[in-house]
Design a protein around this nucleic acid. Structure first.
Length: 270
DNA sequence: CAACAGGGGACAC
DNA sequence: GTGTCCCCTGTT
């Protein structure tokens, strides 16, 4: 168990920022996180955050996962003081972190996300984990399921994937899983590529388009210059940035700004 | 019951 | 780059 003090860190904001689909609130101030094959419970009391895991796992996995070494105050300070909209957005989402999630998990998650709502996306992912993921045990003896490996999903039939509620997205997951399992594309190589190259490779996958590729680049590969444009962001850009988003000013941190905007739009609609 | 929207993408032209 | 289809499920 590790307790540390953190600035610009808010579990509720991270959970609702739409980048991770396997994090959920389990009680007041306490969240459960599934990531790749790991499980963590985490608590927050104002700036005091407690990770319920061993120190080695905290050091070698969760620090990177939650981007704890980064200074998000620096991103917020970089915002144009005259941009009222972005300042409001960043104020609302000032505890958001861009997570470093598993590449394969993000590929499948965002394949499933297309033309889909968040509640159902979560259910779909839970379904494929339960059905095709490796069985694991928490420190206190409870069973959970890891995210299924490419090989496991490559062996699944399209119909089995449809049974997991994927709908027409089943063929995308099946096709992409087979391509990865067959070695037609190397996740390891993509991990070491720069943004432009990585995105280009991801676009060759069946079912991966512009928006999904950018989500994968941002939420798995931590390419902060990726700026995924979905329907919500599109509306926000049309309303507040008629001359386009100031990419030059926010060079290398557009993805962080995208998250502030996305989260802000989501909270406004409730 | 019908209509519709929900974090798009493939494919043809 | 534009249009059309995909044909999913939950909500209204």
């Amino acid at each position: 168990m590790i307790t540390i003090e953190l600035e610009n860190f808010d579990l509720e904001q991270i959970c609702n920022s739409g980048q991770c689909f396997r994090m959920k609130k389990i009680s007041e101030n306490r969240y459960a996180v599934h990531a790749a094959d790991k499980y963590l419970e985490i608590e927050q009391e104002k700036t005091l955050v407690t990770f319920h895991c061993e120190e080695t796992e905290f050091l070698f996995f969760w620090i990177s996962y939650f981007d704890l070494d980064a200074d998000y105050g620096r991103y917020i300070k970089a915002i144009n003081p005259r941009d009222q909209y972005l300042n409001r957005a960043a104020e609302t989402g000032n505890g958001i972190r861009i997570l470093r999630q598993d590449l394969w998990e993000m590929i499948v998650s965002f394949l499933i996300s297309q033309q889909n709502n968040i509640v159902r996306i979560r259910r779909c992912i839970e379904n494929i984990c339960t059905r095709f993921g490796e069985e694991k045990t928490t420190w206190d003896g409870r069973t959970y399921y890891a995210f299924p490996k490419p090989e496991a999903l490559a062996m699944a039939s399209e119909e089995e994937l449809r049974d997991c509620n994927l709908g027409y997205r089943a063929k995308y997951v099946a096709g992409t899983a087979r391509a990865v399992a067959a070695g037609e594309i190397s996740l390891e190589e993509i991990s070491s590529m720069r943004y432009k190259k990585a995105k280009e490779q991801l676009l060759t996958l069946y079912g991966v388009g512009e928006k999904v590729a950018d989500c994968i680049c941002l939420f798995a590969l931590h390419h902060l210059e990726a700026f995924p444009i979905d329907t919500h962001i599109r509306q926000a850009l049309d309303a507040h940035y008629k001359r386009g988003f100031p990419n030059r000013r926010y060079k290398g941190m557009q993805g962080v700004m995208q998250q502030y905007i996305f989260y802000y739009e989501l909270t406004q609609k409730k």
